[in-house]
Computed example of a mutant assay.
Amino acid sequence: MRNDAALTPEYRVFCLRTATHTAPEPIFLYMKGFGRTVDVNCYFWLAQGNGRNVLVDTGMGGDYPGRLTESARRSEASFPVGDGEDTLSQLARHGLRPENIDVVILTHLHYDHIANVQLFENAEIVVNRKGWEAARNPIHPVFDVFPKDVLDYMATRMKAQLRLAADEETIAPGIDVLWTGGHTRCSQAVKLQTAKGKVVLTGDVAYLYENLMSEHPIGLGVSLYESVDALRRLKREGDIVLPGHDKEILERYPGGVIV
């Protein structure tokens, strides 16, 4: 009898911290914690397996030719990048350079998740299709919150690399994307097959473990209903479910080694 599970590639998954951030608690937990703040980390992720190097989001920081600085000046004051936590340094720790990355999956198009996308000239860049269109053509100024210089670069210089994904799509064997909405129109989660089962990277539809545990929606988004639906679904989909910004990830998984 054929064992399809045995044929599915398994990936190792690493959590890479790229910055820190502090914000009011109601941003992370809807209508909760007024007057309090929460300290979080910003992450990107490396998955390796089946001869592929895959990044989920791109990290921030770094000093390299061609860096897009307009958004960096506006954003990185709020998202300070620690010494050695810029994208190039984090990749180097794993013996990698940008040209070694085969696929970059973007959980959504906010600056702290796509800041260094231009580094990856050899990679397929995966964005949710309807979310990409919504970000490029916002229906109201309140939704125009994405870094225009980065999106313009992607739309022109990286057009041939863009893969506009369906709401549910297999990107490569053992790697799937699932549209979540909730946080942004372009929000998608990533599901990876590993030796310990399915690892789900939620993106920012869950900032914290508390969002997942209590199914409490985030406070910064486009739909509370989509957020709750996504939290419930992603808990069913994954054996290990990792929120987008919780500092506890590096306490649970020392060195950022998930599996």
Rank of each mutant, 00 (worst) to 15 (best):
P141S: 05
Q48S: 07
Y253G: 00
W45A: 08
V40A: 04
N128G: 12
G84W: 08
L16F: 02
I105F: 01
A72G: 07
D229G: 14
V205W: 02
L88R: 07
G84V: 14
F143D: 05
P80H: 04
R73M: 13
A23L: 11
C42S: 10
G255F: 04
G203T: 10
S223A: 11
G174K: 03
A165S: 15
T20H: 09
G95R: 01
R97E: 14
G174L: 12
V150Q: 00
L7C: 08
V127S: 06
V127P: 01
V190H: 02
S214W: 08
V126M: 09
A77G: 14
F44W: 06
T22K: 11
S223N: 10
G131A: 01
V257L: 08
G66W: 03
W45N: 07
T20V: 15
L192T: 08
R236N: 12
A123V: 09
P138K: 03
M31Y: 09
Y111M: 04
A195K: 15
H108F: 06
V190S: 03
L242R: 07
S214H: 10
V38C: 06
R129F: 07
N128S: 15
P26R: 05
V228Y: 03
L96K: 00
G244C: 07
D57T: 05
L46C: 06
P26H: 08
G59R: 01
G221D: 07
T202A: 04
G181T: 10
A160R: 11
P98V: 06
E133T: 10
G61P: 00
D63T: 10
T18D: 10
E25S: 13
L46Y: 04
H216L: 12
D63R: 00
A166R: 09
H94E: 11
Y225F: 08
G84N: 14
N50G: 15
D204Q: 09
V81H: 06
L88M: 12
S71K: 04
P173K: 05
S71G: 14
G82A: 15
R163M: 12
V199H: 02
E210D: 15
V117F: 01
T69Q: 12
D39G: 08
G203M: 09
G255M: 01
G197F: 09
A6S: 14
L119P: 04
Y253S: 02
G182E: 09
W179V: 09
G244H: 01
T156W: 04
K196G: 15
R157H: 11
A77V: 12
R233G: 07
T184E: 15
Y225P: 06
Y209P: 03
G62D: 04
T202S: 06
T69H: 09
S78D: 15
P98C: 03
R52L: 15
G255D: 09
T69L: 13
A5D: 10
T8N: 02
R233T: 13
L55C: 02
P141Q: 06
V81R: 01
V257K: 05
V38A: 08
V200I: 15
R233A: 13
T156P: 03
Y11D: 05
I240H: 08
R185Q: 13
S78F: 13
